[in-house]
């Protein structure tokens, strides 16, 4: 593994000049930012601005054309990267929950800890109970995903990621499929996680939430980081693009 020191000494995630095209379409055009340990970064921007792609690159769901991505000491841009080791350190939650429909919530959660980390079944079940309690679903161990509401499914999906004890959590528009009421219950879980010191990167459309929870906001526009700063910048944008986006987004 190549080792060049990260820009910020305590950065858990570092993107440096990341380029990515889908065919002729340039999606990421030199994206750089870093996420210090224990902080929350919100990536915002219009549809098609490249924000979801940037997030997916962090967990190598997309391979990049050029640039450098380092996550918890893994060189994600390196084709020889051990994907399974990277993904033991990174938890990802998707817009469409993606719980496994043929397994109970408990089985959804214990699957990876037993199969990947070799946890004993009893230990994995104890951990499942613990993470489910954390997201307020302590009584849903034996339920199947279809028996839960969308908000409950998303919270269970968060619990499933937490059971792997990741060092950083990625959230890809996790409330976009939910109505406002259910959105609230998911956001409260994420807030509690932030308060517990979890390092998080989230792509979100919830501007109010981003302002309340994010230590740093990354505004993406046309595949670039157009503006970047503390959440307070949402109240006082310095570029017309962000001003327009925030104006229309609220």
């Amino acid at each position: 593994m190549h080792t060049s020191p990260p820009a910020t000494p305590d950065a858990v995630v570092t993107l440096r000049d990341v380029h990515k095209s889908f065919g002729p379409l340039k999606v990421l055009d030199g994206v750089s930012f870093e996420v210090p340990r224990g902080t929350v970064t919100a990536i915002i921007g219009r549809s098609g601005s490249g924000k979801s792609t940037a997030l997916r690159c962090i967990d190598r769901f997309e391979t990049i054309d050029r640039g450098e991505i380092r996550v918890c000491g893994h060189a994600v841009h390196d084709p020889a990267l051990d994907l399974r080791r990277l993904r033991q350190d990174v938890g990802i939650v998707f817009q469409s929950y993606n719980l496994f429909p043929h397994l109970t919530i408990e089985e959804n959660i214990t699957l990876a800890p037993t199969a990947v980390k070799g946890l004993a079944r009893a230990e994995a079940r104890a951990r499942a109970a613990e993470v489910l309690a954390k997201v307020g679903l302590g009584d849903k161990l034996q339920a199947y995903p279809e028996q839960l509401s969308g908000g409950q499914q998303q919270r269970a999906a968060i619990a499933r990621s937490l059971a792997m004890q990741p060092k950083v959590m990625l959230f890809d528009e996790v409330t976009s499929a939910l109505d406002p009421e259910l959105t609230g219950e998911v956001l409260r879980v994420i807030e509690a996680l932030a308060a517990s010191g979890m390092t998080m990167v989230m792509v979100t459309h919830e501007m109010g939430f981003a302002r309340g929870i994010a230590d740093e906001v990354v505004f993406m526009h046309r595949g670039r980081v157009h503006e970047r700063g503390p959440a307070a910048m949402l109240a006082a944008p310095t570029t017309p693009e962000l001003a327009q986006f925030v104006g229309s987004g609220l």
Binding site: R85, R87, I92, F94, L111, A115
Partner: peptide, 21 residues
């Protein structure tokens, strides 16, 4: 496809993804 991705995101090996998910 997202079922594959969810399984990948949990660090399951290809064989585990196939067999268990």
């Amino acid at each position: 496809r997202p079922q594959w991705e969810a399984a990948e995101g949990l660090a399951l090996s290809r064989t585990q993804r196939m067999a268990k998910v």
